[in-house]
Simulated assay, not measured.
Amino acid sequence: MKEYQSLSHTRWDCNYHDVFVPKRRRKKIFGVLRKELVKIFHELASHKESRIVEGHLMPDHIHMCVSIPPKYAVSNVVGYLKGKSAITIARQFGGRTRNFTGEEFWARGYYVSTVGLDEARVRAYIRNQEEADARQDQMKLRV
């Protein structure tokens, strides 16, 4: 049987598949930054009582399956993750220390969908992102 999480008067299981990209879809997510982003996202998610169930960082985009309590709007949590991570990236990797908003890293929008009964399928999709992207590139070459 599935394990549900709970708040004081609520039992819940709210998982969302999120995708977002750096500005102009530049390939910026690699090396030390990639390793640090994992820690940053897990820490920031815990600030909003959320949990990253599954995630995969590609050079030009990020896929995450995030468990968010129903008391938070998905847009608030994703906006918080993007905003605070951009500020952290600017401070740690961009040499900015004060009065910086971090508005130069992530693109403005994001993709989100609910993960219902096919959670295993979505988690497998996130886990196997690199193979899926390689297949897409092969299809582009043939056309």
Rank of each mutant, 00 (worst) to 15 (best):
1 M>T: 13
2 K>L: 09
3 E>F: 11
4 Y>H: 11
5 Q>W: 05
6 S>E: 13
6 S>C: 14
9 H>E: 12
10 T>N: 13
12 W>H: 15
13 D>E: 14
13 D>F: 14
14 C>F: 12
16 Y>W: 15
17 H>K: 11
18 D>Y: 12
18 D>S: 15
21 V>N: 02
22 P>C: 07
25 R>S: 08
27 K>D: 05
28 K>V: 15
30 F>N: 06
30 F>C: 12
33 L>H: 02
34 R>T: 07
34 R>S: 09
35 K>C: 13
38 V>E: 04
38 V>N: 01
41 F>D: 05
43 E>I: 14
43 E>W: 09
43 E>R: 14
44 L>A: 13
44 L>K: 08
45 A>Y: 07
46 S>Q: 13
46 S>I: 10
47 H>E: 15
50 S>I: 04
51 R>P: 02
51 R>T: 10
52 I>N: 10
53 V>P: 03
56 H>I: 08
56 H>M: 09
60 D>R: 08
61 H>V: 09
62 I>E: 00
63 H>I: 01
63 H>L: 02
63 H>G: 00
63 H>M: 01
63 H>R: 00
63 H>V: 01
64 M>N: 08
65 C>I: 15
66 V>S: 02
67 S>I: 00
67 S>G: 02
68 I>N: 01
70 P>H: 06
73 A>Q: 10
77 V>Q: 01
77 V>S: 00
77 V>R: 01
79 G>W: 04
79 G>R: 06
83 G>A: 06
84 K>P: 02
88 T>V: 09
88 T>E: 11
89 I>T: 06
91 R>T: 06
93 F>T: 11
94 G>N: 06
94 G>M: 05
94 G>P: 07
95 G>P: 05
96 R>S: 08
100 F>E: 07
101 T>G: 11
102 G>C: 05
104 E>G: 13
108 R>C: 07
108 R>Q: 14
110 Y>S: 05
111 Y>W: 15
112 V>D: 09
112 V>S: 09
113 S>E: 07
114 T>R: 03
114 T>S: 15
115 V>C: 06
115 V>L: 11
116 G>A: 15
117 L>V: 14
117 L>Y: 06
119 E>S: 12
120 A>Q: 14
122 V>E: 07
122 V>G: 03
125 Y>W: 04
127 R>I: 03
128 N>S: 02
132 A>V: 05
134 A>D: 07
136 Q>D: 03
136 Q>M: 05
136 Q>H: 13
137 D>K: 13
138 Q>A: 13
138 Q>D: 06
139 M>A: 12
143 V>P: 00
